[in-house]
Structure formats: structure tokens, C-alpha cells
Design a protein around this nucleic acid. Structure first.
Length: 564
RNA sequence: UGUCCUGUGGUGUAACUGGCAACACGUCUGAUUCUGGAUCAGAAGAGUCCAGGUUCGAGCCCUGGCAGGACAACCA
């Protein structure tokens, strides 16, 4: 390195998002002795999606950046909807994304005993009571924005009675839903969450971790803040919908006199042309609109992985979208930019013809095979070269030939010349057609002096085509994906259900594509660039006898854009 | 008719805490290219929701509006 290129000016402070600013201020003031502890708290009731990725990139990222730790904590307070299969999927996703929580894998259910003790304390302080109102009755007692709630008739039950009842609730003496434990806060509060929120409900249900130990389960609001506190979380990062919950968490922390975690809220990620609601994604899976949580059209991390996205591209995306408090909708084009940028540097180029038409080189000897050297990645010399078989009969892309081309068509047409990538310059001479008038073969001649790399190869032609030698080609299935929804905001219509915007053409299966023989070696999830077409990867469905590729994303195509 | 949060190019995020708006994506030119990719060079596009005020000076401060969003599950 003789020349020093100035990439960034070290004097200029990197711009920080508002959370980094808070963290740096806390570090400067010596809060918590400079300790930084974050956590990512998913509920194991569904698969993680790219919105979660934004969140945990932030959680783990802040910890990494400031020498702190980030815990993984499963918020498993609802035994009815949660399951260990989701736990496994979530762990796999976060690891795959490149983050490590070491031995700090926690569960809200680890704290059930502690939470129960906290509840006893609150009851003893006269700040909680056992309520025997039904769900309907509670709802009926709710006030409005400007009217306070009607007090529960059980609100002033004596402490000893509350204690007795709560203990018996825990002991399983009462049926489901017959009573709840409620905090006694402020029925007149403008914040609905402060109007005697429910802390515990009775659920005689088996929990995926605690089994049958409990028949009362804490509500999220009762569990979340204290779980943070128990873990000594210094900066509890979450999305905007929890802003109104914060005063409640702070009230609990105060009453219980426990470690004061600070909650900071940021805006969740929204992506155009997709949905991010776990409930609705589950619906797509259950109703068969997609093939599963890992369907390559899904915005889930499982789906993105199968589609061919890399962890690096998703992390880059999360970095680029930024962190702020205003509602946002990110253009999917940015996600696509991130994966193209990553794969451009990494993915080996290979020849594959998706919609093949036969090309016969009339002046090339029958039965002859040449092995032509071609570069694996022009962006990275270290990826080397390989040999491609070339012969008299090839396949090219049907779209790359037009009998009657428009002005700026740089591809093959009668009488025109193009370069066959890494091979010869050819000129189209004639076509064969079937009874329907469809082209069945294109005949051409090649210039034997024009072989790539040769002295006479300097000649310029306007286009270069990819191809595959017909006798050497392998057949493969290729799955093309388009956006799952036709509407930029499928979930944003009051009158219409999001499913009305499902794109009927989101999946196109091409059963008989022709690919170069080296693809025999490709392994599951390998990333490739099909020259001139896009980035693809090997689907897990792929077998030695039946190769299957997914299109991750097409190449940028200015020609297609001009023509739309 | 409440409380809270938020308003900066098409999209997203900045602006060293008061010094005349920057970066990325997208869009459009041109160069180059054995991928109509990549790369390189360049352009258009906001005067910061509105109206007042403080100040030599406001996207940043103050006042008053307006707009959008969140919140009323024994879900998280």
C-alpha cells in the first residue's frame, strides 16, 4: 500500500442514532458503572422475520459496539400459543445471522417463582387484589378516555384474604378464568395500562418448559419489565407500541424496589410489498398460501435464507435502514440492493439457460468438443477459472433472439453478430420453425478466429450471450419468485383484507432449464450468479437427479426497464 | 373527544446541539465493459407540516395550530 486513500475522516464523529447517543451519554456519566446490558426478547409463538432482524441487530449490535452483553430471552408467558419448535427455529436464526448469546439464554418462565414472590409483595403492600370479575365484566367496567373505570367490587378486599385467595389460585383450587390478580393503581389514569391491569390469570395448561408446575401464568406486562430488571438490563430496547406500557413497568420497578432498567422505544421496520404481522404470516402458512415458514417468498429469516439471502446482506440492510422513532416504510429495492451488492462479490458465475432454444453452429465440426476457459468471478480473481464444454449444438435463451428486433436490441437477430460468452462470435443465418410457427432451432455460423483470448478476438460486437452446450447440459428446475403481494402496503387497507392483494404470480416454476455440467457439484444453499440473469441458490429440495434452484434476485436489468 | 409519540427530497437516515440541508436507495445522463451486471463520472429532486416569535442568524429554541400514528385482549 503506497497510496493512502481516505475512506473516512477520522476527525468527523460518526453520526449516531438516538439510542447510541443515549448509551454514550450514560457511559460518559458513569451510569451503572459503565455496564451495558441488552436483550432480545422474542415470544416463541412464530418464526422471526426481517423486522425482528432489525431489532436483534440493534440489541446485539449496541452490546458489541460498547463492550456490553446481549441476552437472548424467550418471553414465554403464554403456554397456549408457545412451543419449543419455535424456540429452536429462533435460536437457529439468530446464530445463522452471526450473533452469539453464549450461556445467556434465558426464559421468562425461569422467573415464574420470582414473579410469584413479587406478586405476594405487591399484595402485602396493598397494591394488588384478587378479582373475581369475568372477562366480560372487566370490559364492561372499563371507562373511556375521559371517564374513569368502575372500581372492581373486589378492589378493597383485605390483604389477608387476597393472600389466601392468590395462594389458592396458585395451588389450583379454582377453574380457568374464574379469578385474576390485578394491580391496584389508578382507575382515573389517562393511561389505560394503569387502570388496575391484570397480573395473573388462571390457565390449567401445560407449559413447554415448566410443564404442569403452574396453573397461573403472568401477563406479559407483569413479566417483561421485571425480567429485564432481574437480568440487570441497562437498556431495554423495544418498538413504539410499548411506549404507553413504560409508566407501568416503572411503577412495578418502584413498588418492588428492584433494578431500574431503562426502556427505549424505536420504530419497527415496515417493508413495502409485504406484511410483518406474525399472526398474519401464520395465517399464510396455515391456509396454504405459501408452503411454510421457510417459503422463499416469506419475509421470515427462514424464508430469506432459503431464498438465498446472506446474513451479511441482512445485517447491512438493518444497518442502512437506521433507527429512529418515526413510522417508516422501507422500499424492498433497498433489501435487493443489499443482497446484490453482497453476492456480486461472492457468487461464482455460471452458465444457465432458463428458457432454452437450440442454436446450431453449421460451420462447427460435428462431434467436436472444446473446453474453453472462463473466469469464475470477474470481481475476484482469486476465485479462479474453470473449463466449459463447447460443441456444435448449444442452448441459448429464447429471449436473446428476435427475428424482427427493435432499434436497440443488442442480441441475436438474422444477420447480426454477437459474442458467445468466453467462446466465439457468431452470426445468425436462419431459423427452423414448427407447425405453430414457433422457432425450434436457430442456425448460425461462427468466426473461428474470434475465440475469446485469441489474437483475433479483439473485434467488438454489441452483445454477449450466455449459453450451454446441448450434449453436456444438465436439466434443472428453477423457481422464480416475485413479490408476494401486488400492493405496496397490503396491510394498510381498511376495507380490504391483506389476502386480496396476494400476487397469483409470486411463484413461477421452470421445470426444464439447462445448466452447465459443473453445477453437479453445487451444494445446498450455495450461492451462484447465473450469468446475465440473476443470483440463484440451491434449494434444499434439490437432489442429484433433480436439481432445484431458487432465484434470489434478478440482476439489474436496464434493458427490461426500458421496455416496460 | 383524552393521553402519549412523530412530522427533513419519491423512500429511509443525518446535520458536530443556533451558523444558510448531507449520505444511502431509487430515478435520469454519459463513459467503460466479452454479464444491457459491476465499475467510473455527473444530473435532477427537499429549503425541513403551517403561522407567529426570540436571535445578527432557526431544521434545531418558544407559542399556537395542523397532520399522521399508538393506546381501551384474562395476547405479546
Amino acid at each position: 500500500m503506497t497510496e493512502e486513500k481516505e475512506i473516512s475522516k477520522p476527525d468527523e464523529p460518526r453520526s449516531l442514532n438516538f439510542i447510541e447517543q443515549i448509551v454514550e451519554e450514560d457511559l460518559k456519566s458513569g451510569k451503572h458503572g459503565g455496564r451495558i446490558q441488552t436483550r432480545f426478547p422474542p415470544e416463541p409463538n412464530g418464526y422471526l422475520h426481517i423486522g425482528h432482524a432489525k431489532a436483534f441487530c440493534l440489541d446485539f449490535g449496541i452490546a458489541e459496539e460498547y463492550g456490553g452483553k446481549c441476552n437472548l430471552r424467550f418471553d414465554d408467558t403464554n403456554p397456549i400459543t408457545e412451543d419449543t419448535s419455535y424456540v429452536d427455529a429462533i435460536r437457529k436464526d439468530i446464530h445463522w445471522m452471526g450473533f452469539d448469546w453464549e450461556d445467556r439464554e434465558f426464559y421468562a418462565s425461569d422467573y415464574f417463582d420470582q414473579l410469584y414472590e413479587f406478586a405476594l409483595k405487591l399484595i402485602e403492600k396493598g397494591k394488588a387484589f384478587v378479582c373475581q370479575l369475568s372477562a366480560d365484566e372487566v370490559n364492561a367496567s372499563r371507562g373511556t378516555d375521559f371517564e374513569p373505570d368502575i372500581p372492581s367490587p373486589y378492589r378493597n378486599r383485605p390483604v389477608v384474604e387476597n393472600l389466601d385467595l392468590f395462594i389458592r389460585m396458585k395451588n389450583g383450587e379454582f377453574p380457568n378464568d374464574s379469578m385474576t390478580l390485578r394491580a391496584k393503581i389508578d382507575l382515573d389514569s389517562t393511561n389505560m395500562h394503569m387502570r388496575d391491569p391484570i397480573l395473573y390469570r388462571i390457565r390449567h395448561a401445560r407449559h413447554h418448559r415448566t410443564g404442569d408446575k403452574w396453573c397461573i401464568y403472568p401477563m406479559y406486562d407483569w413479566a417483561h419489565g421485571q425480567s429485564d430488571s432481574i437480568e440487570g438490563i441497562t437498556h431495554s430496547l423495544c418498538t413504539l407500541e410499548f411506549v404507553p406500557h413504560r409508566p407501568l413497568y416503572e411503577w412495578f420497578i418502584n413498588e418492588l424496589e428492584i433494578f431500574p432498567s431503562r426502556q427505549i422505544e424505536f420504530a419497527r421496520l415496515n417493508l413495502s410489498y409485504t406484511i410483518m404481522s406474525k399472526r398474519k404470516l401464520l395465517q399464510l402458512v396455515n391456509e396454504g398460501h405459501v408452503k411454510g415458514w421457510d417459503d422463499p417468498r416469506m419475509p421470515t429469516i427462514h424464508g430469506l435464507r432459503r431464498r438465498g439471502y446472506t446474513p451479511g446482506s441482512i445485517r447491512q440492510f438493518a444497518e442502512t435502514v437506521g433507527i429512529a422513532k418515526r413510522e417508516n416504510v422501507i422500499d424492498v429495492a433497498l433489501l435487493e440492493f443489499c443482497i446484490r451488492e453482497d453476492l456480486n462479490k461472492q457468487a461464482p458465475r455460471v452458465m444457465a439457460v432458463l428458457n432454452p432454444v437450440k442454436l446450431v453452429i453449421d460451420n462447427y465440426p460435428e462431434g467436436k468438443t472444446e473446453y474453453l476457459e472462463t473466469v469464475n468471478n470477474p470481481e475476484d480473481e482469486s476465485m479462479g477459472t474453470r473449463l466449459l464444454p463447447f460443441s456444435r449444438e448449444l442452448y441459448i435463451e429464447r429471449d436473446d433472439f428476435m427475428e424482427d428486433p427493435p432499434k436497440k436490441f443488442f442480441r441475436l437477430s438474422p444477420g447480426s453478430e454477437v459474442r458467445l460468452k468466453s467462446a466465439y462470435i457468431i452470426k445468425a443465418e436462419s431459423v427452423e420453425k414448427n407447425a405453430d410457427g414457433n422457432i425450434t432451432a436457430i442456425h448460425c455460423t461462427c468466426d473461428p478466429e474470434s475465440l475469446s483470448g485469441g489474437e483475433e478476438a479483439r473485434r467488438k460486437v454489441k452483445g454477449t450471450l450466455h449459453w450451454v452446450s446441448a450434449p453436456h447440459a444438465l436439466s434443472a428446475e428453477v423457481r422464480l419468485y416475485d413479490r408476494l403481494f401486488n400492493d405496496p402496503d397490503p396491510d394498510g387497507h381498511k376495507e380490504q383484507n391483506f389476502k386480496e392483494f396476494l400476487n397469483p404470480d409470486s411463484l413461477t416454476v421452470l421445470p426444464d432449464c439447462k445448466v452447465e455440467p459443473s453445477l453437479k457439484e453445487a451444494k445446498e444453499l450455495d450461492h451462484l450468479q447465473f450469468t446475465r440473469l440473476g443470483y440463484f441458490n440451491v434449494d434444499p429440495d434439490s437432489t442429484a437427479d433433480h436439481m432445484v434452484f431458487n432465484r434470489t434476485v434478478s440482476l439489474k436489468d436496464t434493458w427490461a426497464k426500458q421496455n416496460q
